[in-house]
């Protein structure tokens, strides 16, 4: 599903990832770890087409991202569910309206299953609440629900538990594991060891970013 082939990228003359090659199979669950600034987010940005490699290739859904024209980026992103640390919920919309957003963007009518999805992430009774009325954990779960609302093939999360307590983080992690068990490919960038421990018993693997390098297929958790 995702393949890096000798991919290198840098900012402002500094090499962040150098000659990275890795393969993520469909239905896998991977953690991307490393110290702050190591390049975890860069790996994700290369996948969700916010960045293109300076050299080498990154292939997502079988397509070389350098050859994806701008007008086709949106269609590729609709096959992904992206959860970022700051949630990016739209403040002027309710929880339910935020969860429905991917359907509206795709021009589809939101169905009743989205209420079940909200209940699944534990927000069944908070559907009308605004993001500002939610706790950090609830916001993150709402963001996760929105990310998976359109049933994407690939779920990408960048420090999804960075702003929540340990209990909320464990709950969010259990949701990712469940999604993976449902066949979704999940990729989570985190430096939170507790989050990874919450995935114990799953088939998760760890991609460690260090010195601009990443292990090819990761090591078992």
């Amino acid at each position: 599903m995702i393949e890096f082939e000798s991919a290198s990228v840098g900012y402002d003359g500094r090499v962040v990832l150098a000659d990275v090659s890795l393969t993520l199979e469909s239905g896998s669950l991977h953690f991307v770890t490393g110290r702050s600034g190591a390049g975890k987010t860069t790996v994700l940005r290369l996948i969700y087409l916010a960045l293109r490699p300076d050299s080498g290739a990154v292939r997502v859904f079988g397509r070389d991202t350098r050859e994806v024209p701008r007008r086709e980026e949106a269609a590729m992103r609709r096959r992904m569910g992206i959860v970022l640390q700051d949630c990016d919920l739209l403040d002027h919309m309710s929880v339910m309206e935020n969860i429905e957003l991917p359907h509206r963007v795709a021009g589809r009518q939101p169905g009743p299953e989205l209420k079940e999805l909200a209940a699944w992430v534990g927000l069944g009774k908070r559907l009308d609440a605004r993001p500002a009325q939610l706790s950090a954990g609830e916001r993150q779960r709402a963001a996760l629900a929105r990310a998976v609302a359109a049933s994407p093939d690939l779920i990408i999360a960048d420090e999804p538990t960075g702003n929540v307590d340990a209990e909320a983080a464990a709950r969010i992690m259990s949701l990712f594991v469940e999604l993976n068990k449902l066949g979704k490919t999940v990729l989570i960038a985190t430096h939170d060891l507790n989050l990874m421990r919450a995935a114990q018993g799953s088939r998760a693997r760890v991609l460690k970013v260090e010195g601009g390098r990443v292990s090819r297929s990761g090591t078992p958790l």
């Binding site: 969700y48 007008r71 949106a74 269609a75 590729m76 992103r77 609709r78 096959r79 992904m80 992206i82 970022l84 990016d88 919920l89 739209l90 957003l101 991917p102 963007v105 795709a106 929105r146 990310a147 359109a150």
Partner: peptide
């Protein structure tokens, strides 16, 4: 910009 970024993350076209 935050709203625009969010819409792009969930696959919104520029026209949308």
């Amino acid at each position: 910009a935050g709203v625009v970024r969010t819409l792009r993350m969930i696959g919104a076209e520029d026209a949308f």
